[in-house]
Design a binder for these strands. Sequence first.
DNA 1: TCAAACCATCACATAGATGTGAAGGTCAAT
DNA 2: ATTGACCTTCACATCTATGTGATGGTTTGA
Lengths: 132, 132
Amino acid sequence: MRIGELSERTGTHRRLLRYYEEQGLIAPDRCANGYRTYDERLVDRVLQIRGLLDAGLPTRIIKQILPCLDKPRIIHFTDATPEMLSTLEQERDRMTRRISCLTRNRDAIADYLDAVRADAAPGPAPEPPAIP
Amino acid sequence: MRIGELSERTGTHRRLLRYYEEQGLIAPDRCANGYRTYDERLVDRVLQIRGLLDAGLPTRIIKQILPCLDKPRIIHFTDATPEMLSTLEQERDRMTRRISCLTRNRDAIADYLDAVRADAAPGPAPEPPAIP
DNA sequence: TCAAACCATCACATAGATGTGAAGGTCAAT
DNA sequence: ATTGACCTTCACATCTATGTGATGGTTTGA
């Protein structure tokens, strides 16, 4: 598919698809006329990139993560340098910290919303926990 | 405490503490001489802010989330406008999406690292799954 | 009293992701 | 053959979080 279709199917500005390419996150082929042509699988890949960007990862790191997602991954074993493995470990841990921060706060928001709704609900209101 | 101590205890540049204040995320008192003075609880609050920023949330959203974290939260029930509740619901869901994206990718990285280590390990190498 | 170490405000710079528009090539359909 | 809808590259603008430095006031200790 060409850039327009990928843009629509991923909800991603064309400009950004070119930017991701420039950052080495995707590598579309070129038609004879110079148009970029994207493999079907790049739909998921772009969505993945967007998700990770939204979660606060920079393109530089995403670039290192993406090869981990390909299966079979045997192919990538050879180019695994020690520095890269160390980076991956750090990022794995950092993502774990992000996950727990998000989970904690998401749960607090959910609790808050539940409490507000219970408070605003009609009928026998569930008592808020007594504060002795 | 003053800004220098808070900066050291949270690993946050003074400049950023002033920026967070400007964005309405924290509201330190002022001493007679104009110096900012921070309550002990702001240490955790600043760390929370940093965690959320790192997870991709903008200060504008963080500002709306923070009041949900205060307990007892009964105080905040009154100022809960419908628009704010709707925003909070959206953000709760968006955070849930972030969490699953991060979890999926973190697990993929962890699997990759495990596979690489198993591959590089001495002794009877665990066979990679056969591809028929 | 002077120096060092704080603090204040203000302004300007950077980096990363993104928006936007100009100038021009390609292609399909009328 | 021309129009409209694609595509290309290039450049410049924007927004947010951050870094850095100038200029000057306050406090503390030698």
